[in-house]
């Protein structure tokens, strides 16, 4: 532990980046799980990776291209298709596998090859820069302001889309806005955190919150707290055992989820 604290100065940007991603993704995970769009978030994360891969090849700004691809992805997924022969789930699956394959094909031709695939999957949190942190703070602030101001609209389209429409709320617009905030969170962290970690932060913290709490406010608090604690614990474990960071955080989140289950059981009985 002492050794870790001595090296803390070296890790400060990585830890800041992890905490910011845990904060925003854990918060948004509540909407993702409640709206039952877990696979949309998984596919969008993969589309964002494909955007980064294209940016690598074309020598463009990866964050910008990732943002563009992510927004395109969420815009498409927010459309409610009336095609009855294919389910939305099928279209999401197609987007996921095609963008995964595209990412691999694109980076396999680059000079770095396999290392870039690793970066796409697991991120490179240790390479986080102060500039990336400032960009993240700016975008995350916008996401939270939007969610503070438009909680009613986001909650209405998440709980009951048809009711929202019939009551006069522009449900399609607010659903798109909700998806865009999710897309923004995904794309800002993709280069540093990688799609494995982001996908995990977008699912498991909400599961913890929903298992324990009975009020939306408490679900958000538990999800964000679990997300941040797992990020910090996972980072320390990865340092201590000399293991990759993202899988350590995923393992920590899963361990906390497993500890939540008996708590839930005793609460029920």
């Amino acid at each position: 532990m002492t050794d870790f604290l001595i090296n803390l100065e070296f890790f400060k940007y990585s830890i800041a980046c992890l905490v910011l991603m845990a904060l925003v993704c854990s918060f948004l995970s509540v909407y993702i799980v409640l709206k039952r769009i877990v696979f949309v978030s998984v596919a969008v994360t993969q589309i964002s990776s494909a955007g980064i891969a294209i940016a690598f090849i074309a020598g463009l700004n990866p964050t910008l291209i990732s943002l563009l691809f992510t927004f395109l992805g969420v815009a498409i997924f927010s459309i409610r298709f009336t095609e009855r022969r294919l389910s939305n789930e099928c279209m999401i699956g197609i987007a996921f596998v095609v963008s995964s394959a595209a990412s691999i094909l694109l980076v396999s031709k680059s000079a770095k090859g396999i290392h870039e695939i690793d970066d796409l999957l697991y991120g490179n949190i240790l390479a986080a820069t102060p500039f990336q942190i400032y960009i993240m703070i700016g975008i995350i602030a916008c996401v939270f302001i939007a969610h503070f101001l438009f909680y009613k609209e986001f909650a209405a389209v998440t709980l009951d889309f048809e009711m929202a429409r019939t009551s006069g709320i522009n449900a399609r617009f607010w659903e798109l806005m909700l998806y865009l905030t999710i897309g923004a969170a995904i794309s800002i962290g993709m280069r540093t955190s990688g799609n494995l970690l982001i996908t995990t932060f977008l699912i498991i913290p909400a599961a913890n919150g929903l298992l324990i709490a009975n009020r939306m406010k408490n679900v958000f608090i538990i999800a964000v707290t679990v997300g941040i604690i797992s990020a910090l614990t996972g980072f320390y474990l990865s340092y201590y055992f000399d293991l990759p960071i993202s899988p350590c955080i995923v393992a920590t989140l899963f361990a906390i989820l497993c500890l939540t289950l008996p708590f839930r059981f005793f609460k029920l009985h």
Partner: peptide, 22 residues
């Protein structure tokens, strides 16, 4: 058709009907 995983009280559910008026 109303999703039961949403953690919401009866009062808050009813208040949703006022959102457009607010």
């Amino acid at each position: 058709s109303v999703d039961e995983i949403f953690p919401i009280t009866v009062l808050d559910m009813v208040l949703m009907g006022r959102y457009t008026k607010m």
